[in-house]
Simulated scan of single mutants.
Amino acid sequence: MIQLTEFQNKTLSTIAERRKIGKAGLPQELIRDEQVKVRFTESDRAVIDTFAKNVDTNEAQFLYTLAISSVRDMMNNDASLAQEIKRELLRAGIVLPEWMQDDHEQR
């Protein structure tokens, strides 16, 4: 079995829980309604699919978790970039994701 970080496990659990609730049961800022199309080679997709199955989730939830945890790691490693991104989101009136809030940025 593949070992995920604590953050990745929590993210997968949160996604799975929200999926059971449905859009009607979530506040607007927690609804995942944007889609990003990503194209992979057949072999890359097979690797991703195999990883997803090994952590007992589907490909979309796995890719979401990887993307968010990778961005979080990069922001944790570049405090000035993280602050600029936060300022930009707040200026645009976008609620900060839970994982971007100060008490969730512990390394």
Score class of each variant (00 low, 15 high):
I31C: 13
S80C: 06
E34K: 15
F40C: 02
S80D: 11
V38P: 01
K23L: 06
V36G: 01
S43F: 14
N77F: 10
E42P: 13
V36S: 00
R19E: 09
R45S: 12
V71A: 13
M74Q: 15
A60P: 03
A92G: 02
L66M: 15
Q35T: 05
L89M: 12
Q83D: 15
N54H: 14
N76T: 13
I31P: 08
Q28L: 12
G93A: 04
S80F: 10
R39W: 02
E42D: 13
N54A: 07
F62G: 03
N54E: 05
I21S: 06
N54W: 05
L81T: 13
D78W: 10
V47F: 13
V55E: 12
L66Y: 04
K20H: 06
G22N: 07
P97T: 07
D44E: 15
G93L: 05
D78C: 08
Q61H: 15
M100R: 02
L89Y: 02
I85D: 00
S70V: 03
V71Q: 13
G22V: 11
G93F: 01
M75T: 05
R91E: 12
K23M: 04
I21N: 00
S70K: 06
D78E: 09
V47N: 03
K23C: 00
L90Y: 09
L63S: 02
K53N: 07
D78Y: 04
E34N: 10
D73T: 13
I85V: 15
R45V: 00
N77I: 03
R45A: 09
M74I: 08
E59W: 02
T50I: 02
F51V: 05
A46N: 04
E98C: 00
N58Y: 06
S69I: 04
Y64L: 15
K23H: 05
S43K: 12
S80Q: 15
P27W: 06
